Simulated scan of single mutants.
Amino acid sequence: MASKLRLDKLLSESGFGTRKEVKYLIKKGTVTVNGEQIKDPGFKVDPEKEKIEVNGEPVIHIKDIYLILHKPAGYITSTKDKEATVMELISDVPRFEKLFPVGRLDKDTEGLLFITNDGELAHRLTHPKWKVPKRYYVVIEGKLSENSKNLLEKGVKLGDFISKPAKVKVIKVHENTSEIEIEITEGKYHQIKRMLKKVGNPVIYLKRISFGTLKLGKLPKGEYRFLNDEEVKKLKKAVGLLPASN
């Protein structure tokens, strides 16, 4: 059962604006609780039991949203852009405009993209301190030599930085291409592409298959799903937001 919340806090968390903006809405008389007009921003409400509306629109209180999207190629990982963004693929999620992608995938890269409105979790997942692993399925030109594999696993000099050691697994070798999996704990601009080009195996196709404790699994391309409570707990434990024993 939800505890009682201040009306302005509830509306802000539900996407109706900043605390200052929602206070204006309340004082303007646009908010009703169980059909009664409320003009006190500090009025306490229980969103699970009471009917709260703004200009006749029901308030859906979802403080924290966690979902993964199977990003297709052709979409920009951004909340706003002149080109199509990943947000268009989740536009039916309540208050989707309050969400943001954590980290990024290039326009032509596919795979797992974590999207949330939890700023603290997002910050930790992208902070170098926590070394959150990201695993990719990659199709490359040519065959990955043992020497190239060793270089990737030790760290490759890419001009402005030396990559941290990667984990590399060769899945299948074809006549002119190879399929590999590579795991890194960084997220520099075009990092996977730059690393593989440096060792002589340019990337043909790139898909992220896991991010931290999250796995893409069989989620269809272009679709999303919400995380369950256990997945959220594991993600938070991995970056110290919950005790490991919890």
Results as ranks from 00 to 15, higher is better:
Lys4Ser: 14
Arg6Asn: 07
Arg6Cys: 02
Asp8Asn: 13
Lys9Glu: 05
Leu10Asn: 00
Glu13Asn: 15
Glu13Thr: 11
Gly17Met: 02
Gly17Ile: 05
Lys20Ala: 15
Glu21Leu: 04
Val22His: 00
Ile26Asp: 02
Ile26His: 00
Lys27Asp: 08
Lys28Asn: 07
Gly29Phe: 00
Thr30Val: 13
Thr30Leu: 14
Thr32Cys: 08
Gly35Met: 10
Glu36Ala: 15
Lys39Tyr: 07
Gly42Lys: 10
Phe43Glu: 07
Phe43Gly: 07
Asp46Leu: 00
Lys49Arg: 15
Glu50Trp: 04
Glu50Asn: 06
Lys51Val: 15
Ile52Thr: 04
Ile52His: 06
Glu53Lys: 10
Glu53His: 06
Val59Thr: 09
His61Val: 09
His70Glu: 10
Gly74Pro: 03
Ile76Asn: 07
Thr77Phe: 01
Ser78Lys: 01
Thr79His: 07
Lys80Thr: 15
Asp81Phe: 00
Asp81Arg: 01
Lys82Tyr: 11
Thr85Leu: 05
Thr85Pro: 00
Val86Ser: 00
Ser91His: 12
Val93Glu: 05
Val93Tyr: 02
Pro94Leu: 04
Glu97Val: 12
Glu97Ala: 12
Val102Phe: 01
Gly103Ser: 00
Gly103Asp: 08
Gly103Phe: 03
Arg104Asn: 04
Asp106Tyr: 03
Asp106Asn: 06
Asp108Leu: 09
Glu110Asn: 05
Leu112Lys: 02
Phe114Val: 09
Asp118Leu: 04
Asp118Pro: 00
Gly119Gln: 01
Glu120Trp: 01
Ala122Asn: 10
His127Gly: 08
Val132Thr: 13
Arg135Gln: 13
Arg135His: 09
Tyr136Ala: 09
Tyr136Val: 06
Tyr137Asp: 15
Tyr137Ala: 14
Ile140Ala: 11
Glu141Ala: 12
Gly142Tyr: 03
Leu144Ser: 09
Leu144Trp: 00
Asn150Met: 15
Leu152His: 07
Lys154Arg: 15
Gly155Cys: 01
Leu158Arg: 06
Leu158Thr: 02
Gly159His: 06
Ser163Ile: 12
Lys164Arg: 14
Lys164Gln: 13
Pro165Asp: 08
Lys167His: 13
Lys167Ser: 14
Val168Phe: 08
Lys172Asp: 14
Val173Ile: 15
Asn176Pro: 11
Asn176Glu: 15
Ser178Asn: 05
Ser178His: 04
Glu179Asp: 12
Ile180Ala: 13
Ile180Phe: 05
Glu181Leu: 13
Glu181Gly: 07
Gly187Lys: 04
His190Tyr: 08
Lys193Asp: 11
Lys197Val: 11
Val199Ser: 08
Val199Cys: 05
Ile204Trp: 08
Ile204Lys: 15
Ser210Ile: 03
Phe211Thr: 08
Phe211Arg: 11
Gly212Pro: 10
Thr213Ala: 10
Thr213Glu: 14
Leu214Asp: 07
Leu214Val: 01
Lys215Glu: 15
Leu216Pro: 03
Gly217Arg: 03
Lys218Cys: 09
Lys218Glu: 15
Pro220Thr: 09
Pro220His: 10
Lys221Pro: 08
Gly222Phe: 04
Gly222Ile: 04
Tyr224Val: 11
Tyr224Glu: 13
Leu227Phe: 01
Leu227Gln: 02
Leu227His: 01
Asp229Thr: 12
Glu231Asp: 07
Val232Cys: 01
Val232Asp: 02
Lys233Cys: 04
Lys233Thr: 11
Lys234His: 14
Lys237His: 13
Ala238Arg: 10
Val239His: 05
Val239Arg: 06
Gly240Ile: 11
Gly240Thr: 07
Gly240Tyr: 06
Leu242Ala: 07
